[in-house]
Amino acid sequence: MSLVSVIMPAHNADATIAESIESVLNQSFPDFELIICDDGSTDNTNAIIKKYSDIDKRIILIESFMSRGAAETRNLCILKSRFKFICFLDSDDLWEKDKLASQVSFMQENNLAMTHGKYKMFDGGGLNKKIIPPKVISYSDLLRKCDIGCLTVMLDSEKIDSIRFPNVVKEDYALWLLIMRNGFSSYLYPGCEAYYRRRAGSVSSSKIKEIKKQLHVLKYVADISFSKRCFYILTYCVNGCIKHFYH
C-alpha cells in the first residue's frame, strides 16, 4: 500500500530535474507517488518529466500552461495527491536513498503530524554547509526564525486538516505557521539525507529581501501586532547575525 505523496513543482528546470527525479526513484522506500507540476516551462522540462512518467507509473505529470508560481503549483500537486504522508522536493534539490524510509518510520513510531530534518546546502562554487535545526520547533519558535527546510518536511494529511500553501512570499514558512498555530509542533527526524541547491541570486542569498518577506508573513499570515512584529524581526536579525559570524 502506497503511503507517501512527493510534491515537486518545476519551471524551466531541464538542467537539474532529471537528477532530482532520480533521487526519488532511488529511494529504498518504494511506496510513493511522485506528482510533478510543470509550471509553464519553455525549455525541455516537460519532455524530461514525460520520459520518466512513461517508464514509471508512480510519476504523475500535471501540466500548467501558464506560470502560477511555487505556491499554486504545489497546491495543484497536493489536490492530486492520494496518500497519507505528504513531502516536498523542488526540481533542483536531492535526497539520499533512505530519506523516505527513515522519516516514515520516525513519523509512525512517534505518531507525529509534522517532521523536519537536517540538510546540506550546496552550489557550484564549493559551498557545502550543513543546516542543523532544533529537535522540536513550536509556533512561538517559528515566529522568531524558520529553521525548517521545505525539502525535509513530511506532513500527515490525516492529522492536519488543510495543507495548502498561501499565495504569499515565503509560502512554505507561511504554511508551517498556519499548521503550528493550530497546536502542532515539528520534530527532527534522524539523519541528514537532503541536499538544497542554492542558486546564484536566489531569494535566500539576499538578506535584505528576506527580512522584508519575513515582515510580510508576520503581518499578513501570523497576523500579530506591530510591537510583536518588531520584537520578532529583531530576534530574526540577531539570529541571522549570530549564524553568519559563527560560520
Rank of each mutant, 00 (worst) to 15 (best):
E33N: 12
S185H: 09
T45M: 03
V6G: 01
G191M: 09
N128F: 12
L143S: 04
N182A: 12
H244V: 08
M8R: 08
F106C: 03
H11I: 10
F226N: 07
Y189I: 13
I148F: 02
Y232N: 11
D172F: 08
F184D: 04
N167F: 00
Y139L: 02
H244S: 12
E22T: 05
I242L: 13
M1Y: 12
A18W: 03
N12G: 03
I55P: 07
A47Y: 13
K130T: 11
M107A: 11
H216P: 00
C192A: 09
D223W: 02
P133C: 03
C146R: 09
G69K: 05
A174W: 00
N111W: 00
Q103I: 12
D223P: 02
E63A: 15
F83P: 00
I242Q: 12
G124P: 06
R197G: 00
T16G: 03
N110C: 09
K118A: 11
P190Y: 10
D56M: 06
L151C: 09
F85P: 01
N239S: 13
M107R: 04
C37S: 06
P133A: 07
P190I: 14
V104Q: 01
N12F: 01
K97R: 14
F65T: 07
K120N: 08
M180Y: 05
L151T: 02
M66Y: 13
W95Q: 12
E96K: 10
L89P: 11
K219W: 04
C77P: 06
S23H: 04
K209V: 14
Q108F: 01
V4Q: 05
I49G: 11
P30T: 10
L175H: 02
C230Y: 09
Y139A: 04
M114K: 09
L143K: 01
Q214C: 12
Y246Q: 14
S81E: 01
G240R: 13
K170G: 01
A113I: 09
A200W: 04
D93K: 10
A174P: 02
D56C: 11
A101K: 15
Q103A: 15
K207L: 08
F122A: 09
T115L: 11
S20E: 10
K84P: 02
L100K: 10
V24H: 06
D38V: 07
L188I: 14
K170H: 13
A113R: 05
R164E: 08
L178W: 00
G69L: 07
I211A: 07
Y173M: 03
D161L: 06
N167M: 02
K145A: 15
I21G: 00
F106W: 01
G117N: 03
K209W: 06
D92P: 07
S91D: 15
Y119W: 11
E22C: 08
S81H: 00
G125N: 12
S186G: 11
Y220T: 14
D161Y: 07
W95K: 09
Q27V: 11
T42N: 09
S20Y: 08
G126M: 06
I160P: 02
S20K: 07
K130N: 05
G40A: 13
M180H: 05
K129H: 14
K212W: 08
S102T: 04
Q214T: 15
D172L: 01
K159M: 15
F165H: 11
Y52L: 04
V6W: 02
E72F: 04
S91G: 15
A71Q: 13
Q214V: 11
I131V: 13
S185L: 04
G125P: 01
Y196G: 00
H244G: 05
